[in-house]
Computed example of a mutant assay.
Amino acid sequence: MPLSEQEQRLLEEMERSLYQNDSDFVARVTRRQGRASYTTITIGVLGALVGIAIVVLALVFKQPLLGLPGFVVMLAGVLYALRPGMRMPKAGAKAPRAGGAGSRRPARPSSSGGSFMDRMNERWDKRNDPGQQ
């Protein structure tokens, strides 16, 4: 379900406030952000399927010691498929400014974040209580 214009503006305002007030958090999160590629997912799923096949073969041939490596291969395949991608940003993509030297506005102290949250709470209350509008 798409966001309304008011919700989009609210989200953009919250993002700007986050970038200005908590630059360390933004830097940590954007470094780890990324999606796994289709190749990574495919290799992981294939590894998991090979592990399952080894476990099934171990059951068929009644070789429990063969089942353990099969389980390990299956687990490794699943973990490989689910691991977060570590892509580098594209050349045209700009990283969000975090209130550093190149910012247009100076970063506000973190104590002023309370007024932002108060406004958000007021907006939430107005949205949930139609009689207050």
Rank of each mutant, 00 (worst) to 15 (best):
G77V: 01
I43G: 02
Q20W: 02
N121M: 14
A58G: 15
R35Y: 13
R108N: 01
L3T: 10
F116A: 06
T40P: 03
K126N: 03
M86D: 11
G85F: 04
Y38P: 08
V78S: 11
E12P: 03
S4I: 03
A53D: 09
S111D: 05
N128C: 00
A53L: 13
L46G: 08
Q33N: 15
D24S: 03
V26K: 02
N121D: 10
I41F: 13
S110E: 00
G100A: 05
K94R: 07
K90V: 07
S23D: 04
V60A: 04
D129G: 00
R31Y: 13
G47P: 03
S111K: 05
A91G: 01
V55E: 09
G51T: 06
P64V: 11
P96H: 02
R104K: 15
G85K: 06
A27T: 15
E15Y: 05
L18S: 08
T39C: 09
F25M: 02
R87P: 12
P89R: 10
I41H: 14
V29Q: 05
A81D: 13
Q133P: 11
K62L: 10
L82C: 12
M14K: 01
M1E: 13
S115N: 06
G85S: 06
T42D: 07
N121Y: 14
N21Y: 06
A27C: 08
L57V: 10
R127M: 00
M14V: 14
R108T: 02
R83K: 11
G131M: 10
G34S: 09
V56P: 04
M86A: 13
E13L: 14
P109R: 11
L75Y: 01
V45W: 07
L65I: 12
G99S: 01
P109A: 01
V78T: 12
V73S: 02
Q133I: 15
Q6K: 00
T40G: 03
Q63L: 15
L59R: 04
L66R: 13
M86V: 07
V55N: 02
V78Y: 05
E7G: 00
S115Y: 11
Q6W: 00
A58W: 12
R16Q: 06
M120E: 13
L75P: 02
R35I: 12
P64M: 15
F25D: 05
